[in-house]
Each structure stands twice: as structure tokens, then as C-alpha cells.
Design a binder for these strands. Sequence first.
DNA 1: TAGATTGTTAATCGATTAACAATC
DNA 2: TAGATTGTTAATCGATTAACAATC
Lengths: 230, 230
Amino acid sequence: MSADPSARRGIPDATVARLPEYLRALTGFAERGITSVSSEELASAAGVRSAKLRKDLSHLGSYGVRGVGYEVDHLAYQISRELGLTQDWPVAIIGMGNLGHALAAYSGFATRGFRVVALLDQDSALLGQQIAGITVQPMHALPSLVADQGLAIGVIATPAASAQHVCDQLVAVGVRSILNFAPCVLAVPDDVDVRKVDLSTELQILAFHEQRRALAAEGALDPVAEAVGR
Amino acid sequence: MSADPSARRGIPDATVARLPEYLRALTGFAERGITSVSSEELASAAGVRSAKLRKDLSHLGSYGVRGVGYEVDHLAYQISRELGLTQDWPVAIIGMGNLGHALAAYSGFATRGFRVVALLDQDSALLGQQIAGITVQPMHALPSLVADQGLAIGVIATPAASAQHVCDQLVAVGVRSILNFAPCVLAVPDDVDVRKVDLSTELQILAFHEQRRALAAEGALDPVAEAVGR
DNA sequence: TAGATTGTTAATCGATTAACAATC
DNA sequence: TAGATTGTTAATCGATTAACAATC
């Protein structure tokens, strides 16, 4: 049993999903030379209500000072530690099409806490090519990446048709954290964590609300129901 | 008041977010020549429990047949209609860096229901350049895109520093659906719908669970709490 | 101390789930 | 009719919110 409260009780998924935004807001305050913030100020910067922020932070521990607020650097450190960003996680991107290419160059992946250690592709025509200063390797490089570099996170940027096969290979070598950009559901064992980023799903959700507004403008919807909107 | 039940009562956000996945699964069945599915089969393909699927579909109406299942084409049409995909939504992508470039070429955006009508950038060096067969235009093309093409959805793929400014310009010309790839919170009026896709947030959430597994392996976590996992 | 703001409580709200009556 | 599967109910679970006691 640890002294860290979050180690004893699980942190709610909804809270974990917001911690990165709080961290980003804190980084913004730090860059502007602000050393202390209230829950009201931080919540506003992160786009949430202050009650929700305080509730979320209470799951990590008690890092504020009543009557004063939160020390920016200290809270940022505590959130970083909770998210596991005080170490660097080795990441491999698989699939060097348009999207994989952009991801390899995207600075969001080179942000603190992550390190792109490999770019992989099944297509032998791409092998040896340099993208963003990294040489593209074949899929059979996977086992040594795990053994030698401690590869922990796999990013799948292949077409949907090959995503499950690539996923199986990642799981087989012991990767248990997968970020899936392919538009398909991946089947994995219970101990593997898959998160999905799906551009067309997001567009379709926007289209739903857009259509709703259009119908409301026509008077086709019940005004009470439509006022709820989203 | 309409005969469509979904027009009277709002569909829960959680349900709307799953409709695209159901639609994709149905498309997969249709491609394999399957004309009828049970809630159990469809749920399995979409990665949810059948009870949740039936509950979700019940918000749209009663499109199944007891003892039989759902007719694939008919249900796909009903979901498409509910999502507003029976028409084409004009989309503009703003910011032609690495990511914007990839998005312009990404087939997910050319999928049924959406049409990329413009690529925009603030950098005059890029203007006139062709990307994926579309000429890059300056930001001041926005008003005419709305007036002439019915532009409805804006995709922001700029750096965080210019995202709010771009967003303000979109809102000013009447765009009320925005997909934001920039790692920042956007301030918008209540009637504007912003969805955010954030690569580094997703990685950070994965890192949290990855660290949790590593700590569990060390025995640093309470086994009961850790068994809950994610 | 007086003022300010946190951390927590309790109420509310929405989402999930299992079970089953309805019905093809 | 008998078997199968939907659509709905009711219970449970988790997340959000407002209010405020604790306390700096």
C-alpha cells in the first residue's frame, strides 16, 4: 500500500481524460510567468466549471491551499506524475501513408513524455526511407524494439484492412497500449488498452448537430427539445 | 410536431457518438452480402453489448423485427438519415501544415456525407498550390465559400497559436460546426459546436494506464483497485 | 481576525446493464 | 404453436453540480 491516494483508489476515467487539458492550461500559465492560480482561473482556461476541476483534482490528492489557490509548477508536476509523464514512453508509428507521415512529423508526438523510436511499414518499397529523420523499418523489427528500446505504445495509422493484423503483431510482442487511427474496431485481450481517433466519426457527430440546427430553423423540431441542443 | 420520434425527444449524446460505429459495422455486413443481422451480431461487430445497441437504436425508432433482427440496408439508411448523411456537408480545412496536408488527402474526409470544398491557409506562400487536387485559398475566401458553396463545417489544422483567430473567422461567417485538431481550448458562442481531436491527449491517457500496469507489476498498487483497470 | 478559496458532501442527472414481456 | 429476438422496464452505476464547512 502506497501513501499516494490515487494508488489506492482508482481515478475515474472521466477525470483522467481531463488531466491532459489541465496540464496544458498550467503550462500556459507557467509560460506567462504566473505562479499561482485559483480553481476558477484554471477551470476557465481548461474550459470546465471550477467545481468539476476541484472534484477532479481531489482524486489526485490535496495540492491546493485554502484561501490561496494552487501553485502552478507544483500542480503541473503532480499531474505529470499521475499521468506517467515524468518518464519518456517509447512510441512506434505503424503505417507510413499520408496520415502516418504527418504523425511522424507532428510535434504533438514529440511532446514531453513521449519519444518516437520507430516508424514501421509493411510495404517494402518504403523501407529505408527517412521520414522526419527516422528510417522506416519492416514489421519484423518489432520484437527487438520492445527488447532493446522498451517500446510501450503503438500507433496504428494503416488502412482499416490491415489494422487488426498490425494490432495482433503489437500485442504478440507485448505492447499493451495502442492508439488506433484506422476506422475499425480492434479485437484485443482484456489487458490491452486501445484508444481510437476517428476523423469521420467526429465529422458525423458534427453533422448530426448541424442537421438538427437546420431542422430547428425550419421549425421541424419541438422547440423545448431543441433548446437542449448540445 | 414530426412523426419521427427522434425529432421530439433528444437522442442522448452517448448514443449519437456510437451511431457512426453502428453504421460502419452495417456497411461491413452489406459488403459481405449479409442482409439481416441480430442485435447480438451487430453489437459484436461494433464492439458493444447487445443491450446497449438495442437501447441506442430504440431512441431512433423501432426498426427491428422481433424474433428476426434488423434488415441491414434499412437500418443503415435510418442511421444515415438520423446523422444527416443523406446530404453532403461542405467542409473546409484550414491550415495546410503536415496535418492539414494529410487530412486533405485522407479518404476519411471524402467518405459519404462530406465534401472538401476548400483548403485555406494564412500563409501566402502556400496560396495557389494544389493539394489533393484542390487549390489552396486565402482566408478571405471564407465569406464566399459560405454564400456560394454552403460551407457548414470547418476543420482547424493550424498551430495552437492561430487556432482561436481562425475559429473566430469561421464563426463570424456563420460556420457553426468546428472540428479542432489544434491542441487548445476554443472559445465559441453557445450555438457553435466544437469537437476536438487531440493526439497528445490520447497518448497521455494511454500513458496513465500504461504506468498503472507497470506499478501494478511492481506490487505498488492495491490489487483490488487495480483489477478494475480501465 | 476577516476574506478567500479549497476539498467534500449530498443531490441530481445521465448512462449502462440485465431481465423479460411483447411479438414476430 | 414454439422458438427467437426485439424494445422496454427498472435497477445500478458513474459523473456532474451546487452548496458549504474547513481552513489557510
